[in-house]
Design a protein around this nucleic acid. Structure first.
Lengths: 211, 211
DNA sequence: TCTTACAAGGGGAAATAACCCCTTTTTGTA
DNA sequence: TACAAAAAGGGGTTATTTCCCCTTGTAAGA
């Protein structure tokens, strides 16, 4: 009986290489490949590598992050089982990975025993949702007032998180200052904030910009 | 000839456990212990465990972080060799670890080969400074125009990172709005920024406020 | 004792941000 | 195709921020 095949996608070489030893130490599991970021992995898949049973996907990566990669996987290989791996447990990120098809979300401070369990469950049952994830799922069901930001709004927010004036932002986006005024007012209402400072804080908290 | 002993201090169990496999795979090295945070490690040291040849110390930990731990080690066991391990390479943090006595600073995306090299160099020569660290050291020597923020200024910055107006901030600090005006202008000059947005970005980048 | 430095406070003006209410154009879709 | 919704643009006003230059008291150094 052949072993369950795992591919690791993580930019922290020290971690991915080490993790591959850990996975290798489990009976029934073997690492079939290690990639440094989503782009490398996708290139390899396009190049025709054999898909593994489970992909372990880091969320925070510089080149092509977990969320982008997850989207691509969902579109092109919707049945691929993926477990997200991350150090951060903020609701936004977790939910985005799950809604894009991740079958599990593990924090990097997970006990190796739980980790093995998660691998086994995802392989056999198809998913593994920790208490944290379940909590977020329930939360989402209850108050489903999700805030949707449009592309253009996100562009505006990013520029608002600089020392540019709104006039300069308008120039940068090739829009009239008055249109920018509209964007701002919309966002203030939608995000329940009152000032540009609030917008900056929101943007950073929700990782729309990174500093 | 006995092996070189390593202790790992890192809150990410998945990482520390995995890393211990990696270290174990190197000839001449063995892991003598794994601790979840600085507090656990220090407690163990106080309890009389044998100090290892090298401590691998994570910088970002929830309970007692790398910097605090490093300070304690410097005070109590100044000859202990420590290599800092971190995902972040911002100058502030790197320099604080180095000035507190870390013999090396490695990023978690380091190649395992470099990692092994670093272990060997720290053991034999006593230190291992990557290009990044050397760069920061030189930088520190050249422009030693460190920015010092006064207590009251920090208080002001924290309030500036909210949706309060300056008038409200003045009330909050029991000062005249005009004094606040002075604080702001001082900071704008000192930090080479032009707007309150710039101040907020500075504050977050330098961890004066956390969001 | 005589600076020097700095915290605190201030006047007044110009630029920018925030607010409210409105029109035109584009777009999606029933 | 026609209707509704969303995007873009606008007028006019007020509040806030930013800027420059100034005074006073106080405490530490030379």
């Amino acid at each position: 009986m052949s072993k369950i095949k795992i591919i690791i996608v993580d930019d922290h070489l020290l971690f991915s290489q080490s993790l591959s030893y850990l996975v290798g130490s489990f009976e029934n599991f073997e690492v079939a490949g290690i990639y440094n970021n989503g782009k490398e992995f996708i290139t390899a898949v396009k190049g025709g590598i054999k898909l593994p049973d489970i992909v372990l996907l880091d969320v925070n990566m510089p080149i092509m992050d977990g969320i982008e990669t997850m989207k691509w996987i969902k579109q092109n290989h919707p049945d691929q089982k993926v477990i997200a791996l991350s150090v951060n447990n903020d609701e936004d990120t977790v939910m985005r990975m799950i809604t894009n098809g991740a079958k599990g979300y593990l924090l990097k401070d997970t006990d190796p025993k739980n980790f093995k369990e998660a691998l086994e469950e995802v392989y056999s049952r198809g998913f593994y949702y920790s208490e944290m994830v379940s909590g977020y799922l329930i939360n989402k069901l209850n108050n489903d007032n999700k805030i949707v930001l449009k592309e253009r709004e996100i562009e505006f927010i990013k520029l608002a998180c600089t020392e540019k004036t709104y006039k300069e932002i308008a120039d940068g986006m090739c829009l009239s200052p008055k249109t920018i005024d509209g964007y701002r007012e919309n966002l203030f209402q939608k995000l329940e904030i009152k000032t540009r400072i609030g917008l900056v804080l929101y943007a950073i908290k929700h990782k729309i910009v990174c500093i």
